[in-house]
Structures are given as C-alpha cells and as structure tokens.
Amino acid sequence: MSKRLLGVFSGALSGVMGLAGVALAEAPRVATDIAPVHSLVARVMQGVGEPALIVRPGASPHGYAMRPSEAQALEKADLVIWVGEALAPWLEGSIENLAGTARVIELLDRDETHVLPLREGVAFAASGEDESGHEHEGHEHEGHEHGGHDHQGLDPHVWLDPENAHRWLGLVAGELAAIDPENAAQYAENASAAQAELDTLMAALKAGIAPVRDLPFLVYHDAYQYFEAWAGLHADGAIALGDASNPGPARVAELRDMAQRHNIACVFSEPQFDPRLVERVFGDVAGHGVLDPMASGHAPGPDLYADLMRAMARSLTDCLGTYR
C-alpha cells in the first residue's frame, strides 16, 4: 500500500473511531442506587449505554459508604434513579451534594409506584388489612405524600412488586428520551420488549406459586409484602423488627410459639444474616429457606431483575412445597 493510500486509510479509521467516541460520550450518564433498579434501567438502555450502580451487590442500602468511583459516577450523572430516602436515607444528601445538576427520579415519589404501609408487630394482619382490620385499596399511597418526601411508615421494598417494575420500564424510557431524544425510539422499543418479557415470566411464576399460596411462613425481616400481595401469599410474621436489627429473646420466643401453634411451614432467612438463628430456634418446628430481596448472588445487569423474581419464586415453592 502506498504511503498516500495508507495515510487516507489511517485518517478514515481515525475518523470512524472518533465518531464512535462521540456517540459513546453522548449516551446519557445514569446512576442508580440498588441492583434491581439498575437492572431495569440497564435493560431500557441496552444498545445505547450502561448505567452506573452506586450500592455494590451484597451491601445493605440502608447504611452505605460509597467508594470514590461510585461517588464519581454520581457526580457525573445526567440522571439519577433511586428508590428513595426511606430505603437509603444517606443517599439523599449525597445526591444533593454531588449530583446537583442531574435530573433525579425518586421512585417512591412517583405516581407510577404502588406503595404499602409498613407492617407492625410479631404477627402480621391478614393480607390487604391494617392492624385494625381495615382494608387498603389497591395502589393507595398510604403514609406517602408526593412531592413532600413524607415517607414515614412506608415500606420501601417497592421493587419486589413486578407491576411496579413494569411501570418503571416505561417511566425510565420516557425520562431517557427527554434527555436523549436521538435514542428515544430505542428506549421505547427496549422498554416495550422488557415489559412483554416480564409479563410472560410473571404469569409462569404465579402459576408455579399457586399450589403453595395458602401455606403459612415466617420471614427474617419484613421485606416481602409487595411480592406477597402480587403472588397471593402472606407471611405470618417477621423475626427481626427492622432491616438492620437483631431480634430479642422475647420476640424469638413469641415467634417460636406462634410457629408451633400456627403450623408454620417454613422460616426464611437472608444471605446477609446468620442462618444459625433460624436453624437453632425453628429447626425442629418448620422448614428453612433463604430469600434474597437484593439478588446479591446475581451479576448486575439487564438480566438480574428476572433472575431475582425467579429465585424468589423458586425459594418459596421449594421450601413450602416440601411441607405439602
């Protein structure tokens, strides 16, 4: 090849690479808080870019110290999508300080999000009722004021309702299109395809759960009522009072007594908690399973949310199915 042709080829190649760099740079810089939300956003952004994940897998979102790279991702973000201060109170100040110019979507503050009040006490009221027996209407925003950030008494584990996830896919596509109109069609196409995939998956999982819907069980902490309400399940109670608290002897004794009286089929621990408590206290009266609301054992990415739903359904049916 002559030097002249080589120069032309090299210049053309540099131009193509430069254009690719520009296209990559123009992809919106998006930061998300937890892996399940990150997964939904990643699915909508497929073919355009990848969002950043702030809370690393396996870590608790309730209290977290960001790494420099995570703080940098937040600082550079054009768009921040997070559950809200009821889940990660520490993150609100970080967003204000580091991502002051970014568009911020707090999912708990959106009309698209179905929220439920926290359940209280050792034993939970019947599904759909509060402690006084009053029914909650579907998709009510109990204890929640949009725009006022009043999340007191609100259960923040909203991603475990797949109907919320379904609506968020469309919400994310719209938000991305607003800041990146050139890729609006791609975002809409991705969201629509993801919604169809989720519909198919959840119909299959709900059918699989149906045979064990009426069996009583306990959870380690009360993170699952959104999934329960969707699937027609109902936990009888939680071992721990909060996400980061350990149960006292009196609570454990009361729950063990309830497990015996109510013929509890299964008690579920979580990966971040020592399973020996469940085995020691309930080993001779109920089965033992593991639920992971954060999908900490799965690789972050567009497939994680579906993997989370499958794992939840599998854990429930495996343990409760053994009881039958």
Rank of each mutant, 00 (worst) to 15 (best):
W82P: 04
G84I: 06
D130G: 12
E112Q: 07
D109C: 04
V122C: 09
H157N: 15
E135I: 01
D130H: 10
E96I: 10
V115K: 15
I81P: 03
H139I: 03
A102S: 04
E92A: 13
S94D: 14
G138V: 00
S127P: 00
F124T: 11
A88Q: 13
H151I: 03
R110Y: 08
S127N: 00
E129L: 05
G153T: 12
H144E: 11
S127T: 00
R119I: 12
H146Y: 05
G153K: 10
I81F: 03
R110F: 06
L108M: 11
L118V: 15
E96R: 11
A125G: 02
V122Q: 11
T113C: 04
R119T: 14
P156N: 10
A102C: 05
D130Q: 09
D111T: 10
L87W: 09
L116N: 07
G153H: 12
G147K: 03
L91R: 07
V83C: 05
E135Y: 06
W90K: 15
G138C: 01
A86M: 08
L118Q: 15
A99L: 00
N97A: 15
E120K: 15
L154H: 01
I95W: 01
E131N: 03
R103Y: 01
Q152A: 14
E129M: 02
G148P: 04
S94W: 12
E92R: 13
E106Y: 02
I105G: 01
A88Y: 07
L87S: 08
G84H: 04
F124G: 10
H134M: 10
L108V: 04
D155Q: 14
V122N: 12
Q152T: 14
